[in-house]
Amino acid sequence: MASRRRMLLKVIILGDSGVGKTSLMNQYVNRKFSNQYKATIGADFLTKEVQFEDRLFTLQIWDTAGQERFQSLGVAFYRGADCCVLVYDVNVAKSFDNLNNWREEFLVQASPSDPENFPFVVLGNKVDVEGGNSRVVSEKKAKAWCASKGNIPYFETSAKEGINVEAAFQCIAQNALKTEPEEEIYFPDTIDVAGSGRHQRSSGCEC
């Protein structure tokens, strides 16, 4: 049972609106990129098979809405995440400042059993813009923040040019794999030898 569970790795991508969460996912999964800005609504995922130490895993990558008004149902999908990816735009200072909020919000809502050691990965995206001339958050600053939060791995990426995307997700997958399964271990209250749960079958309407 545990082996089946470990075949699926759940990853959540968080960050401000417009930093390129969807683009990073699309680049990684489909090797496609579009310059057009399209907001994401709610949350959904794409999957990708990854080979790791001779084993095949399915990476379930959850892309989320950066705009709060498109997150009306809440964040129940955080549950059971194995790794959280925090993305910011190296050309927008605010998006970097907000990383802390995203991280804390995730820890509160997902409430992993060991928040201190829960794996995050930080991506500084859009390093390609204007040849890096418009960037406002330095690599040093970003790395310092990552170091202060328990040595979070950090990558500078460009979803547009495909720079470092593969490497970043490789690292994300590795870190996700390191997480102990979060699943609460369930034991039924009573062992119903004669086919448990039958009493639960509804005898009422059939819808």
């Binding site: 609504i41 959904d44 009306s72 149902l73």
Partner: peptide, 19 residues
Amino acid sequence: RNELRDLVGKNLHVLSQLE
């Protein structure tokens, strides 16, 4: 209903992502 809105709007997002 307001809470449920993203389930509906989601479809538009899917459309926008279609090649």
